[in-house]
């Protein structure tokens, strides 16, 4: 499993380091300019996930991966573990940077419920991955179909980010304003992740890697 993780980190590590950097820049910028950074972060992740998965398809990476000494299940597990790790990094780095910036420049804008907001956004990022990963593995080699599903997927993200209730603002913020709602969101996210893993594992085990 460690070997599989090393392989997946090697495959995705660079792209996701850049993604995390982009997220951080967006966040730090939002401390100076009042902007909906949560929405930007979600969209940024959505398109970069698509780009990463597209690169895999275009280079026939599955043909390569399935030929390597790694089982398909191991490959899927390693991918999901990687994304859980990424989500954890996302949450801790963002909170760390926020604390640091606040300590250095106390006059900057404060983010309400920063801890809960970061957790909700981190889990939303994980859910985007959980949505895209099985779709790309179901429709490899058939770009139009996967793109159609991916395009549909953007609607909930848009709604999730923009059409909140009038009191709490953005939808994602509704989950950050109450402990029970936050807890439910965390549980639902992990259930979603487990379902996505089961589906992805099934697809990858059966798929032809061309």
């Amino acid at each position: 499993m460690i070997k599989a993780m090393q392989f997946v980190i090697g495959m995705h590590g660079k792209s996701f380091s850049l993604l995390l950097m982009g997220t951080l820049l967006t966040f730090v910028l939002s401390l100076y300019v009042d902007m909906s950074w949560g929405f930007v972060v979600l969209i940024l992740h959505y398109f970069l996930f698509m780009d990463i998965l597209d690169k895999q398809n275009n280079n026939n990476i599955q043909t390569f991966v399935f030929s390597l000494p790694i089982t398909r299940t191991m490959y899927v597990v390693a991918n999901y573990l990687f994304f859980v790790l990424y989500t954890a990094c996302f949450v801790f780095v963002l909170l760390g940077v926020y604390a640091l910036v606040k300590a250095i420049i106390p006059s900057i804008n404060s983010v309400a419920n920063m801890g809960a907001t970061t957790i909700v956004l981190g889990l939303s990022v994980l859910l985007i991955f959980c949505f895209l990963f099985p779709i790309y593995h179901l429709y490899t080699g058939s770009g139009k179909k996967s793109r159609a599903f991916v395009a549909i997927g953007i609607i909930p993200i848009y709604m999730f980010s923009f059409y909140g209730d009038p009191v709490a603002g953005y939808v994602y913020q509704t989950f950050t304003t109450g402990q029970i709602r936050l807890f439910v969101f965390i549980i639902v996210s992990f259930i979603g992740c487990a379902i996505s893993f089961g589906i992805a594992r099934e697809f990858v085990e059966k798929k032809n890697g061309v």
Partner: peptide, 26 residues
């Protein structure tokens, strides 16, 4: 097993040393 396909099915946006770093552990 060592395998060679009719085309190079690997990431193309990396160098061979970068590619080595993540294939080697397997």
């Amino acid at each position: 097993i060592g395998f060679v396909y009719d085309e190079l099915y690997m990431y193309q946006h990396v160098t061979i040393n970068q590619m080595r770093s993540f294939i080697k552990p397997l």
